[in-house]
Structure formats: structure tokens, C-alpha cells
Amino acid sequence: MASASLIADAVDEPTTRARRAAGPAARGSRPGHRARERRRNLWIYAFLLPTFVLYGMYTLYPMVASYWYSLVEWNGFTADQRFVGLANYEKVLADPQFWSSVKVTMLFMLVVAPLRVFGAFALAILLNSPRLPFTGFFRTAFFIPVVTTTAIVGVVMRFIFDPASGPVAGVLSLLGRGPVDLLGSTDTALVTAGIVYVWKFFGITLIYWLAALQTIPQDLYEAARIDGAGGFGLFRHITLPMLIPFLLIISVLTIEDCFHAFDLMQTMTAGGPFFSTEIVEIYIYRWAFAATIPQLGFASAAAVLFGLLVLVLVVAQVWATVVSRRLRARA
């Protein structure tokens, strides 16, 4: 939802500016106008209320609660919560397994985010071509994995990659290769999971790019064609520059999205073998729910730290893009 609104904001920006420019003249000053506007706003807020309530209950409250839990020692079994200050944070930071899971998460993101962003970009260009037949079919085909249940995909993929009887093993054996345990080997498990993840969520990034492509006015292309521009010239001098602002938004959204792979990873590898696919979300889950005596305070501290790390990364990325844009403008 947030991603859709960001894209919509980018698209609607000129219209909004035009409305602002019209100023008070457009608003009118008939008696009763303000009352009608208040009534209308009331309805707007009434419709938004369920979202506010649910968002507060299921997003804001758990976030605030996790900050509190990170400061207490609590096993979740008893009501006894002992305030320990920053001790949980110290323990998390001193745990090599936390850093190992951060490393796995970053590695995962570095592999899958570029594949999603640039792969989907290339495909969107192709699917946006008016000369390509069955574009509707292809768009649907690429989006179908997005709407399938992730946990089910994880379970099914375990069968697909089963080295004893899965179809991948069958193909490899036809090629004369012995059983290859792609999900059971520490060397290949993360990459295999990454490929499945890209396949599963590729459609979302594709839709972002297709939406961005729709914003390029057709008259620009027509004018360029009249001026003699070819296909590559159109892409190089119109499509690409017009899409640059979207690259930032889509990259940020995709990178942030790549940090949330819990359901797929948990069902496909559960963090194994030997922690090789243990992303931070699984590390947090393991301490919060899978331990014999859960450590909810410790797990919450890990969650808070990771949230901050992601925030820093996103802010740094936005800052770098803004700075580079300014430098380009000066040049």
C-alpha cells in the first residue's frame, strides 16, 4: 500500500502543483462550503478509522511494545518481567550468531535486490513494448507467484529441490550429475533460496516499473521519432532519464522488502543447514519462540537493533541519491 502511494505521489506531483497554484480562487467562498467540507472530511476520517485502529493495534503497538520488551528479561511464560536496562542489547551485540545472521541477511539482500530491481526493469521495458503480443498474459504470469501463499511456496520448493526425488534432481540426473542437495548444503542453500525469493516477488517490482513507464508522455516519443530518433535513442534519451526518479523509490522499496523473507526461509530451510540461511528474522524467531525457555527481551533487542540498521541503510541510500542528484544538477 505504501509503495503504491509513493508511486502515485510521484505521478500526481504535477497535478497537485497545478491545484496549489490555482489557490483560493479554486476553493470558492460560498456560505456553507466549509460545513460541507467538514462533513466530507468527517466521512473521510470515518472510513480511515478502521485502518488507523488496525494499524495501531497490529503495527504501532507491537513496535512500541518491542522497545519495552527489549529492556526487560522475560521468558513469555510468566508475568515476571525484570527491567535490565540495556543488558539485552549488550548480549545481542556480543553474540557472534547475531552478526552471522546480519551477514546472511545483507548477503541475501545484495543478491536478490539487484536481481529484482534491474531484472524487473528489463522485463518491464519488454512488456511495455506495443509490438509484443500477449502482454496481458505475460504480466499475469509473472505476477501469479506474488499472490500465492509464501509458506506454501516454501514447502513446495522443498519437494522441488529434494535431491532424492525432486524434479530438479531428475533433470540433473538426466544430465549425468549425481544428487545435488541445493537446500541441504551450506554452499548453495542461500543462493537457491534467493532465486526462489526473486521468482516469488519479481512481479511486485515489475508492476512498479510498469506503473512508472505509464507516466512517460507518449508525445515525447512521437516528437523524438519525428526528429529521427531510433529505438535505442528513445530508450537512452527519453525512457531512461524519465525513469531515474523512480529508480530511487523502487530500489528503496525493494531493498526494504528484501529484509522480510521470514515465511519463505522458515518453511524452506528454517535457517539451516548450520545457520547458513539464518536471516535476522529467523534468529529473532528462534530466541522468541523456538527456544526451550524463550528469551523475548533478548529477541526484542535483536529486532530493535536490526530495525535501526535497516533504517540507517535506507536513510544513507536516500541521502546518497539526493547528494548525487545535486552534484549532477550543478555540473
Binding site: A164, A169, P179, D181, G184, A270, G272, P273
Partner: peptide, 9 residues
């Protein structure tokens, strides 16, 4: 071991 055993639940 049967291939895949390393990850079997």
C-alpha cells in the same frame, strides 16, 4: 545417507 537427509525434519 539418503540425499537431502542433512536438512530433514
Amino acid at each position: 545417507l539418503l540425499p537431502g537427509t542433512n536438512g530433514f525434519q
